[in-house]
């Protein structure tokens, strides 16, 4: 082999020696420490720390602590962990990067502070990441959720090529123009932890000093992948979708908007399960999504008009 090539290859294999600071941080690193650090950081910024919502959602954005609270013009600061289910991403626990359930860390601040990017960068620094040694990029990536009539403008944040965060200025939710504009920061907790632990297998992450991601989640991934892809009863899901949809409509009419919204979330989850069962055609997909969106938009309109009248 040519000497030049050898040099390059030996670099690739060489372990860099962490600085003292980093060694300390690394030893403490675990998912629960990561969560605690973020909780501490955002609580210090005045965020109320919410608890995860108890209905299945595809993303932290869909929970009431985000969806309803961005609609009105009152100040709002919240941060929370939200388990998020994406049935089609399941890989029976065999893929080192894909899981049908992952954990998001969701931050919503309204109005968006003008120094929010700096705050976000500070939050990474608070995790012990020395950004002067890394490449952090805000890469154009506008976000959209047709199911809840929401879209925003922003970036995916890449840290040395790894997408660790979705950073969005909300423009619309429930089909309503938002004013003032809220900012949403969604950290992918597993991604971030993989970066911190320099690991390339999600299941090898440490949840705490003694418990690994594997211990906690492997069986769940296996069983739910089997359920999502092969076992979920398509007819039951279809009729559940329709029943919950009707219930949502009925509840909106009665002005019970929070329960109505729960029904929409359930519809959305049934829809995702049907999708992973391969039971939705292109045209059905469009139709079902719009079915949910219509009710959600209706909820948003009623919610904002109630806000005005109270």
């Amino acid at each position: 082999m040519k000497p030049a090539l050898l040099e390059i290859l030996s670099c690739a294999g060489k372990k860099t020696i962490p600085t003292n600071n980093e060694r300390v941080d690394r030893a403490r690193m675990s998912l629960q420490n990561l969560i605690m650090s973020l909780q501490r950081f955002w609580a210090d910024q005045g965020c109320y720390l919410a608890q995860p919502y108890d209905v299945e959602v595809g993303a932290g954005t869909m929970t009431p602590d985000t969806f309803f609270r961005v609609l009105d013009d009152r100040d709002w600061k919240v941060a929370y962990v939200q388990p998020s289910r994406r049935p089609t991403d399941g890989r029976f626990g065999e893929n080192p990067h894909r899981v049908q359930k992952h954990f998001q860390y969701q931050v919503i601040i309204k109005p968006a502070p003008s120094e929010i990017q700096k705050l976000y960068i500070d939050s990474l620094t608070s995790l012990g990441i020395d950004l002067q040694e890394h490449d952090i990029r805000f890469d154009e990536d506008d976000w959209e959720s047709p199911t809840i009539g929401a879209w925003g403008v922003g970036w995916q944040v890449l840290l040395d090529g790894l997408e660790i965060t979705q950073f969005t200025y909300f423009q619309q939710a429930g089909g309503i123009d938002l004013s003032p504009v809220p900012v949403e920061i969604t950290y992918g907790l597993e991604r971030l932890e993989m970066f911190l632990e320099e690991k390339d297998d999600i299941f090898s992450l440490d949840w705490s000093d003694d418990v690994t991601y594997q211990d906690l989640r492997a069986r769940e991934e296996r069983e739910f992948s089997e359920y999502n892809f092969n076992q979920a009863d398509v007819r039951l899901l279809q009729s559940s979708f329709q029943k919950n949809h009707r219930e949502a409509q009925r509840l909106v009419a009665k002005g019970l908007l929070l329960p109505a919204y729960d029904m929409c979330l359930k519809c959305s989850h049934f829809f995702n399960l049907l999708d992973s069962r391969g039971a939705i055609s292109v045209t059905e997909r469009v139709k079902m999504i719009s079915q949910i969106r219509v009710v959600v938009n209706h909820i948003a309109q009623k919610y904002t008009s109630q806000e005005v009248s109270t």
Binding site: H134, D160, G161, E198
Partner: peptide, 28 residues
């Protein structure tokens, strides 16, 4: 080859981070 918004990578952290992500993508 990658282009970072940086002026150095003395500990090869940028490079190694990208290698890890790429390996995952190629594995996929």
């Amino acid at each position: 080859l990658g282009v970072a918004d940086a002026y150095k990578d003395p500990k090869f952290l940028i490079r190694k981070g990208n290698e890890r992500v790429l390996k995952a993508r190629l594995e996929d």
